[in-house]
Amino acid sequence: MSEQQLAYATFHVMGDSVVPAFWTRYFDVTPDIAIAKGQPFTTPSGRVSRTPGRVGLWGFGSKEFVASDALEPHLRFLIGRLDLTRADLRETLTRERVKARFWCYWDNEAGNRVPDIPHDIRAMMEAIGGTIDIDEYR
């Protein structure tokens, strides 16, 4: 692996009705980011925001836990750690009126890397009504 990771992923729950404490209890992890719409929040730099959150967001990422330049190990870590295959997840997302997504960082400065998301992970996200977004940096 290079000094700077070329890939990592974050699982987000997003929407105006996100209650960060609910999702922290549900997934039993401390999030990397937690924003309730209309409330001040802690920025990535550790400061309190000057303006309230415009949207609700709860997120937990793989960057600190997985050492790989491929996306698959990052996604599999998140699936396992958050138990994203649990039977009630889609129903809970619907009831709470929120959306789920994987946000993936993909460094491709050389232009020769292709992000590969395995079929079973795509199918799992489809089954819960979630999406997979890849932000590619060149």
Rank of each mutant, 00 (worst) to 15 (best):
Q5C: 03
T85V: 09
D116R: 13
A67P: 09
T30K: 08
R47S: 14
P115T: 04
W106D: 04
W106E: 01
Q39R: 13
D107I: 00
D88V: 12
F27M: 10
A123F: 10
V114H: 11
I79C: 04
E64Y: 14
Y26R: 02
A127Q: 15
R81V: 06
T42H: 09
R97P: 01
Q5D: 03
N112T: 14
G61P: 07
F27P: 12
W58S: 08
A21Q: 09
I117N: 12
I121N: 05
W103T: 13
R97F: 02
E91V: 11
P52H: 10
F41K: 02
W106S: 01
V13N: 05
T10Y: 06
S45L: 05
D83P: 02
R76V: 11
Y137T: 00
R25T: 14
L71P: 03
A87C: 10
Y137G: 01
K99L: 15
R47F: 06
Y26C: 09
M14R: 12
R101I: 09
Q39H: 14
F11D: 03
S68Q: 11
W103N: 13
D133S: 12
E109R: 02
G56F: 02
S68G: 06
I128H: 06
L71M: 04
L57G: 00
E136W: 07
S62D: 13
C104P: 02
T24M: 04
S45A: 05
F41G: 02
P20N: 09
R101Q: 15
Y137K: 00
W106F: 15
G46H: 07
N112P: 02
E126Q: 15
S17L: 15
G53S: 05
R47T: 05
G38A: 01
R81E: 11
W58E: 06
R113S: 04
R101W: 07
P20I: 11
T24K: 10
M124F: 02
V48Y: 07
P44M: 04
S45M: 01
A127E: 12
R54H: 08
S17G: 03
G129H: 09
T94A: 14
I79G: 01
D133Q: 07
W23K: 10
L93S: 04
R86P: 08
E126K: 10
T10A: 15
Y26E: 03
M14F: 02
